[in-house]
Design a binder for these strands. Structure first.
Length: 780
DNA sequence: CAGTGAGCGAGCTTCCGCTTGACTT
């Protein structure tokens, strides 16, 4: 008898399931969705009740052809795609393509790839749930409508070139970044003084130590000074000691989102890197599926984990738990991310060990005992004063899960928790204390931090926007479109005041701290900001943070058979399409224009706005044909929203034409690598002792001639058309193309004079294709 | 590491969600 054909989404799953099911089944994978909407005219017949037109995309035709052939010669076809909206739709598309009747074709689901789960699924097959399929179609069609209607509006209204796009997920992601940036810019730091007393004491071994106690109030400068004055000659006494037990519980096992966050915090990985490595671990069979929103662990996994905890750490460390998903939008088609075998500690995957360790530890910890702590709070009385100082200490009584793993924290959470963990010396009520010093330190409130890739994912997940499979691609998209940039920001120096009472004398000092420095954070570009404002202005419905949650609710109703999908789409489409048409017709070009003031030299208006080539400042009116306006590009750390008149005017000082030398203009400018002089299509970097805003023609010409001389001595040959040079270096000849250098193979170094352009091209291509050799040389 | 910046207009671009490909040395 012919084998039955069982179809799943992932090929890695297919292999495991085939082993479990044995000889009755052949298990194949369809590699996710096999059909999608046609791209022409949106692939939707709006007038015929939003009837979708599906096609098999180019890259899926091979898979579909194979499945068709297999289905023909197989016994029964079983559909085992994931148990969520998308999985249900994939099953239905398979019915359509493989010519199966969805009313009778067997459809099974399981949340975990274990023998009992799959066997019991096979025992009770159902059929395709068309309501759920319709909910997916509504989701797909709505996303297509939003994306393919909004994007052309941007093409029409934006003067800047590039592939612009908008969509339900990406546009809100950009909005989050833009609004955070504005909150940071609008933030005004408020300072207050925090009082800390440092006291001498002895620890259990009689060793001298110093411990800290804090005042409860935040004071202004005057009050702080007055308080310190009042403490001159005071004595200090312990008046109360409270001990409280505390517990700490482990976090749930990883989902896609929490894995991305922890890998970012602990390993510094971007979300794409995390997913790439996780994919490799999954394909090698080391971990369960990595695109999941579920925190569940299978029973067999729980047994495996329990056994491992008991044998490695002892029974007292074991405390099993069932975690519940906090996220309403979760569809939980898979398990949490966990190792497939807990006794496996080493993985042979490039870059995979550290991520695997993280997954292993988090999984172990999730089923381990709570950590038990004892918190001690001591009150310290000041004889001259009603203010009370409080010392806090924490002692670990039982480490529990902390033996294995402690979850990292975001900057955002750190701001709220000013933790004072640590040990206190043994203290008794009534004990007198000797003061070392009393400090009143000026502290500033901080704005919220900018998002990292991972904290943006966390935010999107909280809003129910996007899915585990799309978090990383969404971030890539907004970066690729130039709406958002990932970069570092240098901090600025800030003074803060410090009052110190020591040996009954008060001293005042001003110290400096660095503030606002950020690494690898997401910043909105001007392009992202102006497009966001435009979209909010005209399409506030779609741009609303609650929009996805709202339509998800309706998709749920469709899935429950309580709502008709084409009616739901129509309800959305009518006002949306009207707004699209009105905006296309009436809306002004997107410019983000801001008045900065008047140029004192020319008396003309200075504005900042988006131009054809990006954000810029402009002096004078575009319509003025007599006296044409002047333009200058913004620097990378400047933006239309925050630039001020003086900064704008500064930009017009460069590039500066100094005059002519050898009948060619001499210009100074600041480039990516610092100030430079441009002359006769050549660039010469400006020595540090010269200021680009001050340097004169007389100073510049010697620089040109000297550098040219030095260069000519080093030059062997120039292929001018291609801007490729052969140069002499201390280690032998090399190729210079633009700003990059490339090696010349040893065998050919003797006859560099005779090299032809195509030979040199080949060397460059080779060097680019084999970067390892270049790197080794560069390191030395 | 230049210069450009308005609007017109061929013909182009675009969404979200599911899954991994592999023309060659």
């Amino acid at each position: 008898m012919a084998k039955n054909l069982l179809i799943v989404e992932s090929p890695a799953k297919a292999k495991t399931i085939e082993k479990i099911l044995g000889s009755d089944f052949e298990v194949k994978s369809c590699y996710g969705h096999i059909r999608d909407l046609e791209k022409d005219e949106m692939g939707i017949d709006v007038k015929k009740g939003f009837k979708p037109r599906y096609i098999v995309p180019e890259d899926k035709q091979k898979v579909v052809k194979e499945l068709k052939q297999l289905a023909k010669k197989s016994g029964e076809v079983w559909l085992a795609t994931d148990e969520d909206r998308e999985g249900e739709a994939i099953s239905w598309h398979l019915c359509e393509v493989l010519d199966l009747d969805p009313l009778i074709t067997k459809r099974i689901v399981f949340h975990e790839i274990t023998k009992p789960a799959i066997k019991s699924a096979v025992d009770k097959p159902r059929t395709v749930n068309m309501n759920l399929v319709n909910a997916q179609q509504a989701r797909r069609i709505l996303d297509r409508i939003v994306g393919f209607e909004l994007s052309p509006v941007l093409w029409r209204k934006m003067s800047m070139r590039g592939n612009l796009s908008a969509g339900r997920v990406q546009s809100v992601a950009v909005r989050i970044i833009v609004e955070r940036e504005r909150a940071i810019n609008a933030f005004k730091a408020i300072s207050s003084f925090k009082v800390e007393g440092f006291f001498h004491a002895k620890d259990l071994n009689g060793k001298k130590i110093i411990f800290k106690a804090e005042g409860s109030k935040k004071a202004n400068a005057e009050d702080a000074e007055q308080f310190l004055n009042g403490c001159i000659g005071a004595s200090y006494k312990v008046t109360d000691i409270q001990k409280k037990p505390a517990r700490k519980s482990p976090a749930a096992p990883f989902t896609t989102s929490t894995l991305q966050q922890e890998a970012s915090r602990k390993l510094g990985y971007g979300v794409s890197k995390t997913m790439l490595i996780a994919q490799k671990l999954y394909e090698a069979g080391h971990i369960t599926y990595m695109r999941t929103d579920s925190v569940n662990l299978s029973d067999t996994a729980m047994q495996d984990i329990s056994k491992q905890i008991a044998s490695s750490y002892g029974k007292e460390y074991l405390q099993t738990r069932k975690f519940k998903n906090k996220n309403e939008s979760a569809q939980e088609a898979h398990e949490a991310i966990r190792p497939t075998y807990m006794d496996k500690n080493q993985v042979d995957i490039a870059d995979g060990q550290r991520l695997y360790d993280l997954i292993w530890k988090r999984t172990m910890a999730s089923q381990m005992s709570d950590a038990e702590l004892e918190k001690t709070v001591a009150q310290i009385n000041i004889s001259t004063n009603s203010e009370i100082l409080q010392a806090e200490g924490e002692v670990m009584k039982f480490d529990g899960f902390l033996k294995v793993y402690n979850e990292g924290r975001d900057e955002e959470d750190e701001m709220e928790e000013q933790s004072t963990e640590g040990m206190l010396p043994p203290l008794v009520v009534g004990q007198s204390l000797e003061l070392k010093e009393l400090l009143a330190t000026e502290r500033y409130t901080r704005p919220q931090p900018r998002y990292t890739e991972a904290s943006l994912v966390k935010k999107l997940e909280e809003l129910g926007i996007g899915r585990p499979s799309t978090y990383a691609p969404t971030i890539s998209t907004v970066l690729k479109r130039g709406y958002v940039e990932k970069r570092d920001k240098e901090g600025i120096k800030r003074d803060f005041r410090l009052l110190k009472l020591s040996e009954n004398k008060i001293t005042k000092v001003i110290e400096q701290e660095n503030t606002g420095a950020e690494k690898s954070k997401l910043f909105p570009t001007d392009l992202g900001a102006v497009i966001t404002d435009f979209l909010i202005q005209h399409f506030d419905n779609v741009m609303d943070y609650g929009f996805t949650a709202k339509i998800e609710n309706e998709f749920d109703n469709i899935a429950d058979g309580k709502e008709d999908w084409s009616l739901m789409l129509n309800e959305f489409y009518k006002p949306f399409k009207k707004e699209v048409e009105e905006t296309m017709e009436k809306a002004e070009r997107i410019s983000g224009e801001r008045d900065l003031g008047i140029d004192p030299v020319s008396g003309k208006k200075v504005i900042a706005r988006m131009g054809r080539y990006g954000p810029m400042v402009q002096i004078g009116d575009s319509a003025d044909t007599e006296d044409k306006p002047k333009f200058a590009k913004l620097k990378t750390d400047q933006s239309i929203e925050t630039i001020v008149l003086d900064e704008a005017l500064e930009l017009f000082k460069l590039p500066r034409t100094l005059g002519q030398f050898e009948n060619e203009n001499v210009q100074v400018n600041i480039g990516r690598f610092g100030p430079y002089i441009a002359h006769d299509k050549q660039f010469y970097s400006l020595p540090k002792e010269f200021d680009p805003y001050e340097v004169t023609l007389e100073e510049a010409t010697p620089i040109i001639t000297e550098k040219r001389q030095a260069k000519s001595e080093r030059t062997i040959k120039v292929f001018e058309k291609e801007k490729i040079q052969l140069l002499k270096g201390p280690y032998g000849p090399y190729i210079k193309k633009g700003l990059r250098n490339f090696p010349i193979p040893k065998e050919q170094q003797d006859n560099v004079q005779d090299l032809k352009i195509d030979e040199v091209q080949k060397m460059i291509e080779y060097a680019i294709a084999n970067p390892s050799k270049g790197k080794r040389r560069a390191k030395k």
